[in-house]
């Protein structure tokens, strides 16, 4: 199926899931995403780095030592990109209208 119209940054399912979790809450902890997605820290970091670099997510750290936690927050640009990407996906699964037969 064509990738035209889809945001290439959001096309990988792992990144889409990260954006979905972030969009449904004010902030998501890094550990939640590793648990939920079953990804290694390094794999998740790689996916998040791509999302942070394009400005879709921001990362903040809280606590020190063993209580240190990394939180991800979706930006306005990320929310708009996700909405547009989702709309495009929904458009792709809409059933095509039957072509009326002549006569």
């Amino acid at each position: 199926m064509t990738l035209e119209g889809l945001d290439p940054v959001l096309t990988p399912p792992k990144r889409l899931a990260c954006m979905g979790a972030a969009s449904a809450t004010d902030k998501v902890e890094f550990a939640f995403l590793t648990d939920y997605l079953g990804l290694s820290d390094s794999d998740l970091s790689k996916q998040l780095k791509a999302l942070i670099e394009v400005g879709y997510l921001t990362s903040t750290k809280t606590g020190k030592g063993v209580t240190r936690r990394t939180w991800l927050t979706i930006t306005d640009a990320g929310r708009k990109a996700l909405a547009s990407h989702t709309a495009e996906l929904q458009q792709m699964i809409k059933p095509e209208l039957p072509i009326p037969e002549p006569g």
């Binding site: 979790a21 972030a22 449904a24 996906l89």
Partner: peptide, 10 residues
């Protein structure tokens, strides 16, 4: 994937 991740986060 998107819907499930949103529901799980909530």
């Amino acid at each position: 994937v998107l819907e499930n991740s949103q529901a799980a986060a909530v």
